[in-house]
Every structure is written in C-alpha cells, then in structure tokens.
C-alpha cells in the first residue's frame, strides 16, 4: 500500500480549501488562498507544484484535484517535519518576542519558581 504523503500545517490549511472546492481551476484556487490564507499567487502556485510532486494533488490542465482525503492525511507528522528542517535563529535586526536559547532544566525551574512566588505574594496582597 502506498504511504500517505505528509504535509506541513500550512499545506494542510491549503488542503482544507482544496477539499471544500475541488475540482477547482488553479486561478480560482489562487484567489481563495489570497482571501483566506493571505498567500501571494506565486506562493500558491509553488505549493500546488510541491504537493503535486508529493502526490497529494494533481494539476490536470489547470484543474486541481486532491488525491488524498482529509482522513488519510497524517497531520501528526507535522511537528516532526518542522523540527528537522530548520533551526529558527533570527538575525539581530529583526524585532522578536525573545531569543530562543538553550536553558538547563535547573534554570527553567528557577525562573518558574520566581514567577510562582510572585503570584503567591501578589494574590496574598490582593486578598487583603
């Protein structure tokens, strides 16, 4: 039996649109993706090609049709794929929420303690 192809979460959202409207002209699919996903047309076409190569869909003379059903997609593989493909480091000139860094369990616990202690202290004050 053929192995079910894997998809990323973003591709999964794309597939949701496809399953709802298939079979659909690729140009209409582009419009829907722009509206619902915020994707540029080039992005949509790239994804169509990628998923076609992976056997998830088929693009037959601009008509796009899914080859896999929602039930068959192994969404649980998503996280695993993500971790393997990149490391997530950001250059200095990007405004980020925080830096991703390796911390020891002890460090994490210490900080968690700090937060918990603060909560206790504040709730004690508020209770009065």
């Amino acid at each position: 039996m053929m192995e079910t192809p894997k998809v990323f979460e973003s591709e999964y959202r794309f597939c949701l649109i496809l399953w709802e409207h298939e079979p659909i002209k690729s140009s209409e699919l582009v419009a829907l993706c722009k509206e619902q996903l915020g994707w540029k047309p080039t992005t949509t076409y790239t994804v169509i090609k990628r998923l076609s190569d992976r056997g998830v869909l088929v693009n037959d003379n601009t008509m796009v049709r899914a080859l896999v059903t929602k039930e068959e997609i192994q969404a649980s593989e998503i996280d695993e794929m993500m971790e393997k493909t990149f490391d997530g480091s950001l250059p200095a000139f990007i405004a980020a929420f925080t830096k991703h860094r390796k911390m020891s369990d002890r460090e994490i616990d210490a900080i968690q303690h700090m937060i918990d202690a603060y909560r206790k202290e504040s709730s004690g004050k508020e209770g009065k």
Partner: peptide, 23 residues
C-alpha cells in the same frame, strides 16, 4: 520560509517555519 504563513487576522500570521514570534 514564511511565504506559506497563513493569515490569522489583521496582520497576524502563523507558520510552521517560525520557531519564535517576530515582526
């Protein structure tokens, strides 16, 4: 990497290729 990020609302997007949030 973020070309396939999906719109959540307004100017907020989500992507599997984002490890920590940024602007």
């Amino acid at each position: 990497r973020i070309a396939t990020a999906v719109l959540v609302r307004r100017n907020i997007y989500k992507s599997e290729n984002v490890a920590s949030p940024f602007v």
